[in-house]
Simulated assay, not measured.
Amino acid sequence: MNIDLLLDAALHYYSEEFTPLLKHLNKCSNQLKLSTPDQHLPLLIFKPKDIYLWIKDEGVSDFPFLFTDPEEIMFILYQHLSTGDEVFVSREFPLHLTREQIEENINKCLLEDDREGFNYWVKLLKNSG
């Protein structure tokens, strides 16, 4: 999946209160990675009406914290990303992508021999039509 396409779609999907956060994520998109089954932290989760951030601070607690306020998320991510660390993005997206964007991702998966991604995008294409 292309993180840049996801962020572009999210910019059109979410309300204006998320715009500064999404623009910041777009600037740092090279540090965003899709999560894996073992679910790395910090993890951004895109939900239908909200964006969540799960993050763990070893110096504060052994348990992760959940943030839901866009301004808090942006503040925390600004500090985290400024160190050069990665942030993971959940693979489950509620965003509605155009047929053209889905087809671009299918072609990219074919070029990169990404079978898992290919299956995901073909399934999404079948469900969108």
Rank of each mutant, 00 (worst) to 15 (best):
I45F: 00
E112Y: 03
K23L: 03
T83C: 01
W121P: 06
D57G: 07
V87L: 11
K33N: 06
P70T: 09
F75W: 07
P20I: 02
E92I: 11
Y78Q: 05
L21C: 11
L34D: 07
N2W: 03
Y13D: 02
E116R: 11
I73Y: 06
L22Q: 04
L22S: 04
I55R: 08
C28L: 07
N2F: 03
V89Y: 10
I51K: 00
S29M: 06
E104T: 07
K23N: 03
G117S: 02
K123R: 12
Y13F: 13
Q101H: 06
L5R: 00
Y14M: 01
D8H: 02
V122M: 15
K27S: 14
N127T: 06
L77D: 09
R115E: 12
M74F: 14
V89F: 07
D62R: 13
V60P: 03
D38S: 12
Q101W: 01
M74N: 15
F75E: 09
L5C: 00
L11I: 08
L5S: 01
I3D: 00
E86I: 11
S15D: 12
L21Q: 14
P64Y: 06
I76L: 12
K108H: 10
D85A: 15
E16D: 12
S128V: 04
H96K: 11
I3T: 04
L97I: 04
E116C: 09
F18G: 00
G84T: 12
P70R: 13
P20A: 02
S90N: 13
N105K: 08
P94S: 08
L11R: 12
T36P: 02
D62A: 14
E103G: 06
E86A: 13
T19A: 08
C28G: 08
I55N: 08
D69A: 09
C28P: 05
D8A: 01
Q39T: 07
P48D: 02
I73Q: 05
H12F: 00
F88N: 05
K49H: 10
V89K: 11
F88K: 06
A10H: 00
